[in-house]
């Protein structure tokens, strides 16, 4: 059992601007913990989290893999979030490297086929498109959840970049909800990019039916 990272340094004032870890965060932590042995055996050198928010997930990955085993890169468009990510890493002795950036932006050309573990808990809540656009521009807490049409406005952009980022043995973990069309996402990644997607974990949390999807270049048992 790997403990949830210590977040005691983050206060209510931080959570005015940065998404506080909740059920959707914890299901991703649980999925990573279930895969802990496989992830360690990958000997990952580069982990990249998109939209790291509080920094809880990247820090947890560092706790699974070891603080010196991999480079932990974390992007977010929200300056409060990059600051929280830095502090959460420091609090838990995992050197998470925050970047104020949209998706993988400035890393894409150098990280081509280099990311061993890619993590994304996106803004997945269906909203109207204007609300999602505005939330991204404001780069504040609403950007952590407002997902536009089908909750896929932001996720769709990243999905088209995943194959070019993943290393030969790389894995991509994505948080989603039922309204995002789980099977549609998996079918599309298979057909367009040859990435095999599967449900790593699913559960109901209040009104949400949460999923963690895992994508690989080949079946997990080969």
């Amino acid at each position: 059992m790997i403990p949830t990272p210590d977040l005691s340094h983050l206060k209510a004032a931080d959570y005015q601007h940065v998404y506080e870890p909740a059920e959707d965060t914890f299901i991703l932590l649980d999925a990573l913990e279930e895969d802990a042995d496989v992830l360690r055996n990958l000997h990952p050198r580069i982990c990249l989290e998109i939209g790291s928010g509080s920094g809880c997930v990247s820090t947890f990955a560092g706790k699974i893999l070891g603080s010196t085993t991999s480079l932990y890169l974390a992007t977010d468009i929200n300056p409060h979030a990059t600051q929280c990510t830095k502090l959460t890493g420091r609090q838990n002795k995992v050197p998470v490297e925050p970047l104020l950036a949209s998706l993988a932006g400035p890393l894409r050309s150098r990280l081509r086929h280099s990311v061993d573990i890619l993590l994304f808990n996106p803004p997945y809540v269906p909203t109207n498109s204007a609300e999602a656009d505005e939330a991204q521009q404001d780069a504040d807490i609403a950007g952590a959840w407002a997902g536009g049409q089908d909750g896929m406005a932001i996720t769709d952009i990243l999905l088209d970049q995943v194959e070019s980022l993943l290393s030969p043995r790389g894995r991509f973990y994505l948080v989603a909800v039922k309204q995002n069309d789980i099977h549609g996402i998996c079918r599309r990644m298979q057909e367009q990019y040859g990435l095999k997607g599967e449900v790593a974990l699913q559960r109901r949390a209040g009104r949400e039916h949460l999923y963690v999807l895992r994508f690989l270049r080949q079946p997990a048992d080969t």
């Binding site: 830095k86 050197p95 970047l99």
Partner: peptide
């Protein structure tokens, strides 16, 4: 904490800037 390991992975990604944009 921009360390040189990270600097080595960053390239300019401004519109139209696709060559000589690193390091």
């Amino acid at each position: 904490m921009v360390r040189l390991i990270t600097h080595n992975l960053l390239a300019c990604h401004a519109k139209g800037c696709t060559s000589n944009n690193f390091p």
